[in-house]
Structures are given as structure tokens and as C-alpha cells.
Design a protein around this nucleic acid. Structure first.
Lengths: 350, 350
DNA sequence: ATGAAAGCGCTAACAT
DNA sequence: ATGTTAGCGCTTTCAT
């Protein structure tokens, strides 16, 4: 009978001793192929393990095997519904594949992100998944870190950021924004403002450009003063709308915010100015986070399959080949009450 | 010069060889106390590590040291803003303490949860943090698993679930609900309905009981038919409100949903019935998730410091002693427009 | 089918 | 201050 010290878990040795077999056999019975261990030994090992409450030490397993069953997920902010939806998909996919997820948060700081990748790399995860637009231009250090990780056999997948030499799952932000513009014009809108995020965010740029391009296609332009830049957050949206209102939106009929949280902030700003979103000024967003249907009026937006993106990222990370494979997921314009159909002339005629 | 195979990372040996020192010295320089290694060797080891792009293998480190720098976080649903806020706090605290977080999602299934605890235990995390009400009564298997984990030296902390023999961070749901009831009565409300969650959820029970007790203190009772049970989710809130409306709310003035997501679902149900939340029927929730201020009218609720709860859970998990220590965090009633002050008689008099 | 033994990458006495 | 040596818990040849 092996004496069980408190303060530490039973080891494979303990189980083997208890079952009266060698550690090798115990290993085979518990974690290796069941094939070549006799039924009776198998049973007694299993019994011993259960009795002792044995759980394999995954770290030891990892060092011995040289590989882990972990995937590292890096997001900018887990409290942001956009990222938490992606995370939910990723966790779901990972668990289905028997992987455990380790998560880290960059707080939108490139330095932090580099640090995180470096730390997480220490766990030798099977894959590293980066979600969300990288910020800033100088990505050399990060790229180097990832290159080293890949060279060592790790997989990298990125979410919503085409153009990197990794497996990528994304949507076509430009085209989706174009579609939204077209739908809005078809809905009767003619005069637009755009609440955009920081220029360094590729996502923000793509959506802005797509939207403007979509309008241009119908001969509509957006004056520079009606393109307001602010943070990619709800407060940013609030600030942007406040600025827009200050500048005098004149006959602007609709403000397109490049993401939903900004749009929701913008709606709040309208209310703070005693205006009614959808009535006094229509608002559209992008992402279709769950709050988009919670607000009133419900927000017109572009559906982004965030959860599915997380799931596909795992698939990509697990797929053998396809180095730079890009998975484009479909989007969908959903018109809701924040952009009521517009007939006849503008409310405020010039 | 050590030959570097592709497909695997440089090891400490490689670094040591490159620097012309023993592995032990390299270890001390890189991961041990810097104290007892000469400045020049230190420098050359560091240089070698940088040159090779060395990252310590945390698994190997863990097996050798017998301890890890990981904490496992278990939540019911990471896409739920309540949990993602707690997770954000936990991740923040963990990163500050140099720990990495591994996350798993129970999907509110006790079986799944047991499985998860068992798997995560394999990583020998420094601590396991359980967030959210346990479901169901028969917790023996889970309790046993946790007991074994603790016996082996692990720390367990739970969030929002007093009564377990672990470090706990929670709020006083009962009292907070009482406070809310009192505030609402002071605000002029007299006739209430409650949209509650499943009876197995302790949180739901506590909030219901507290609310009813708070009303009772002022001589107000809630008829059984005005207490509607549904899922603890937004759809649950929608369903509950729909049921309430079907039953004929008579002169009910305010519906208290035991959490914000239910309250928001309830508001949606009101709109679906062509009623205006706050005007035709006041609504109050509980948690103060960020969406509470996004909806219109903004939701009256009880502020729960979710992020702080996540942070404190880490503290608790790191604190040496205090086995069953319970940290009670303060809550705050916030009255918003979904419960306008009520003067004079009910809108619909009997 | 099973065990003995070597080794995964790292740390920690123990020497010196 | 540094190197040598023996592990940590597990897997995996290699024998038998």
C-alpha cells in the first residue's frame, strides 16, 4: 500500500503500485492505447486510479510527450460583447476537440500583447488564436515572436484580420459596409454621417471605406465634417455623436457607426441631447451584438457571425495543412427600427 | 554551436551551450534568483536566450517545481455579460499576479462542470475559481473532486455562492433585493410582480425572497400568480413577461426581474405587446450589466460589482490562510427611467 | 502483454 | 558563484 502524502496528488506510480503493475502498464491503461493491455490489468488499474482519485498530471504528460492539449486565446477585452462572443465560440470548439483554452487580454496594448504571446508560448500550446484587429504599424516584434512559435511547430490562427500569413477567419468588412450603404439608400436615406474608430484599426478603416464606396456607387458623398473619429467603444460613440451634434448635422438623416457599441453610445448621446434615435436621426451599427436588439429602437446593423468565427478559428488551428488559408464568413444586413423606411422629403428640409 | 532542429523550441540546454555555461547556471540566470550568478555570465546567458528566441517550457518547469502559475476559471457562459465581466476582473487580477488563466464553460450543466473540474485539475492549477450559482442539489461528486483538489494543495474560490466551504466572494442578494423593494416603495410603487429564475438557482431564490421580504416590511404582498418562473436568460425574461401579460397583470405597476438579462427580455416582451416599458409597466432588474444603461428607458437595477468580484476571487485564491473566508462586496440600488417616480394613483385604477 | 530503462525540459540539493 | 547529479511525473523505446 503506497502511503499517500497530503499536499500532493497521487501519481501514476501510486496507481501502478496499488494495482500491482508497472508504471508503464498503468500509463498504457490510463492514457495510452488500450489495445495492448489485458482486460484484467486494465480493470485493476482503472479501479486503482478511481480509488486513489488519480488525475494525470498534464504538465508532466506534456513534457514527456512534447505536446499539449491547450490553445491560447488572445482578445482585446473579454468584457466586450464582440470578443466574448468569439471567445464563446472558441471555447466551445476547443472543448469539443478536447482542448483546454487559456485566455489572455491585451487591453488593446500592443506591448501587452507581445508580452502575452511570449508568456503563453511558454505553455507550448497547440495553437495561438489572435482575435481582433492588431493595432499600430510596427508589428515586427510580434511577427517575430509568432514566427518563432510557428517554427517550433505551433499553429497560429487569427480572427478578423486578413492579410497576415496565418490561417484566418474573417468577414469582408468592406463589402458588408457597402451592402449596408446600398440597403440604406434603397431604404430612402440620402444624407449620411459616419462615426468612425481610430485610423490604426483596420476594421474601422475597411468599414468606413466600404460604406463610403457603397454610397459613391449611387452618387452620394459624405462631407468630411460628417466623418467623426473617436474611440472604438461605447463612450467613443457617445463622444462622436456629441461632436457631430455640435458641428451641426444640418440635414444628415443617418449616422453610421462602424460598430454596434459605438452606435449604442451614439444613441445615448442623441437622447442626452433630447433627440429620439430613429426619429430625429437614424442610426446604424455593425456587428449585431446581442445588445443591438435590446436597445430601443432596435439597431440596424450588419450581422457578424462572431461565435462561428471563434469556432472556425479552432478548426483552422487544428487543420493540418492550409498555412495561410482564409475563411470568409458571410454577413448579413439587418434593417431594424433605428432606420425606419424613409419616404418623401427629409424631416428637416434645408 | 548547437544545431537547432525545426519543429521544436530551443531548450535551456541549448541556451546554456550557446552561452558556454551549465544548464544550472542558465536556469538560475533565466528563471531562478539572479542573486548568485555573476554579472558577465548573466549577460551572456541573456544574450544567448535572446539570440535563440528561448522561452522556458512552462510544463517542464511545472513538473520540476511541482507547481504552476495557472488559475482555472469556470463560468456558466462566457458570452453572458455577467460572467464576462467577472472573467474580465479575474483575468486582470491574474495577469497582475503573473498567473495565466485557463477557462472553461459549463453551459449550466452540472455534469459538464464535474468533467471540467476533473480535467482542469490535471493542469494542477494554483487555484480553481467557480463563478455562478451551482445548480441542483446533488453536488457530492463535485464536492469530492474539489476536496481531492484541495487535499493536494490546490486552492478553491467561489464567486457569488456563499455557503460553500471555500473562499467566497459574494454579495448579499437578499438584502440588496430588500433594499431595492424599499426604494421602489419609497418611489411610490405598491403593486408588484416578480419574474424569477428556476428554483434550483440559489441566487434567484435569494433575490426573490429578499424582494418579497422587503415589500412585506411595508405591508405589501405579492400574489402567487404574479410570481412567474422562467429561465435565467433574456428569453426567459421574455417568456415570463409574456406569461404575466397573459395572466392579466391587472393593476400591477412594476415587474421585478431577478436579473438584468431577464428584465431586458421582459422589456422586449412588453414592446412586442405594444406596451411601453416604464410607462405602461415599470421594470426593474438586478446586476447592472452594461446593457442596463443601453436600453431605453434605462433600467433600474441593483449594481453588482462583477469585475471586482473577479478580482477579489483571485486575491482569495492567492491569500495564504482564510480557508472559508467570505468577502461581501457592497451593492447599490440605482433608480433609472424604467421606474419613473410614481405620484398619485395607479394609471389603471381598479 | 508487460516491465526495465532512458529520456522529456527543467529545478534543486549537494558539492566544490 | 558554478557545475554535477538526482530527481519531478509521465511516455516510450526496447527487451522479454
Amino acid at each position: 500500500m503506497t502511503e499517500q502524502r497530503t499536499g500532493s496528488s497521487p501519481t501514476l506510480r501510486d496507481v501502478a503500485a496499488e494495482a500491482g503493475v508497472s508504471p508503464a502498464t498503468a500509463s498504457r491503461a490510463l492514457n495510452g492505447s488500450t489495445r495492448n493491455v489485458s482486460a484484467d490489468k486494465l480493470a485493476s488499474v482503472l479501479r486503482a486510479a478511481a480509488k486513489l482519485g488519480y488525475t494525470p498530471n498534464l504538465s508532466a504528460q506534456a513534457t514527456a510527450r512534447g505536446s499539449t492539449k491547450m490553445v491560447a486565446l488572445i482578445v482585446h477585452d473579454i468584457a466586450d460583447p464582440y470578443f466574448s462572443a468569439i471567445a464563446a465560440g472558441a471555447v466551445e470548439g476547443a472543448e469539443a476537440a478536447g482542448l483546454t483554452v487559456t485566455m489572455a487580454v491585451t487591453d488593446r496594448s500592443p506591448d501587452r500583447e507581445l508580452e502575452i504571446v511570449s508568456t503563453l508560448r511558454g505553455h507550448r500550446p497547440h495553437a495561438i488564436i489572435l482575435a481582433g484587429s492588431r493595432i499600430g504599424e510596427d508589428q515586427e516584434a510580434l511577427a517575430e515572436e509568432l514566427r518563432a512559435y510557428e517554427a517550433a511547430g505551433g499553429r497560429v490562427a487569427v480572427v478578423s484580420q486578413p492579410g497576415l500569413p496565418y490561417g484566418t477567419v474573417t468577414i469582408d468588412n468592406r463589402k458588408a459596409a457597402e451592402d449596408l450603404a446600398a440597403a440604406l439608400v434603397a431604404h430612402g436615406y440620402r444624407r449620411f454621417a459616419v462615426l468612425r474608430g481610430p485610423d490604426v484599426l483596420r476594421t474601422s478603416r475597411d468599414r468606413l471605406e466600404g460604406f463610403v464606396a457603397g454610397l459613391a456607387r449611387t452618387g452620394i458623398t459624405v462631407a468630411d465634417r460628417f466623418v467623426v473619429e473617436a474611440d472604438f467603444t461605447e463612450d467613443g460613440g457617445h463622444a462622436a455623436m456629441t461632436t457631430l451634434l455640435d458641428r451641426g448635422p444640418d440635414d444628415v438623416e443617418l449616422a453610421f457607426a462602424v460598430n454596434d457599441v459605438m452606435a449604442i453610445g451614439a444613441m445615448r448621446a442623441l437622447r442626452d441631447a433630447n433627440l429620439v434615435p430613429g426619429h430625429d436621426l437614424a442610426v446604424a451599427g455593425f456587428d449585431d451584438i446581442s445588445a443591438a436588439t435590446d436597445v430601443h429602437p432596435a439597431l440596424t446593423t450588419v450581422q457578424v457571425p462572431m461565435r462561428a468565427m471563434g469556432l472556425h478559428a479552432i478548426d483552422l488551428a487544428l487543420a493540418a495543412g492550409g498555412e495561410g488559408e482564409v475563411v470568409w464568413l458571410p454577413t448579413n444586413v439587418v434593417l431594424r427600427d433605428s432606420t425606419p423606411r424613409r419616404t418623401g422629403e427629409p424631416v428637416i428640409s434645408p
